[in-house]
Nucleic acid binder design. Structure first.
Length: 109
DNA sequence: CCAGTGACGATTA
DNA sequence: TTAATCGCCACTG
């Protein structure tokens, strides 16, 4: 693809998310220059949930809530993977979300 | 081709 | 403060 595929870029960034960290759809969208297209980020992860190469479980909404857990093999899979990464999850929400937030705009810059 | 939907997020009321 | 609406763009029926 010649042109910049927002979709494609989402996968690339998702793979770069370090272990023990999480990020938000909006953060990725903003990094790609389309902060208003956070929905597309989520849509992009549609196929990522079943793709082991892409840690979609490290991507949550801006509240730190595991909104997309239902797209995984099974709902608890997302939390399971997060805890495996050392991320504490409580009531479908990432604990200390802001502290664990990995912003590609600042971290990856 | 048109309308509805969706793993979001910011803004307006 | 909470609730509702708009924008964004890809995909499905």
């Amino acid at each position: 693809m010649d042109k910049y595929n927002f979709f494609r870029n989402v996968y690339d960034v998702a793979k770069l998310i370090p272990k023990g960290r999480v990020t938000s759809y909006g953060a990725i969208a903003a990094y790609l220059g389309a902060k208003s297209s956070a929905r597309m980020v989520g849509w992009a992860m549609n196929g990522a949930g079943t793709d082991p190469k892409i840690p979609a479980h490290r991507v949550v909404n801006h509240k730190g809530l595991l909104t997309g857990k239902h797209h995984f093999e099974y709902p608890s899979k997302m939390q399971e993977l997060l805890e495996a990464d050392g991320v504490e999850v409580k009531n479908d929400q990432v604990v200390d979300f802001e502290k664990r937030l990995w912003d590609p705009m600042k971290e990856l810059l």
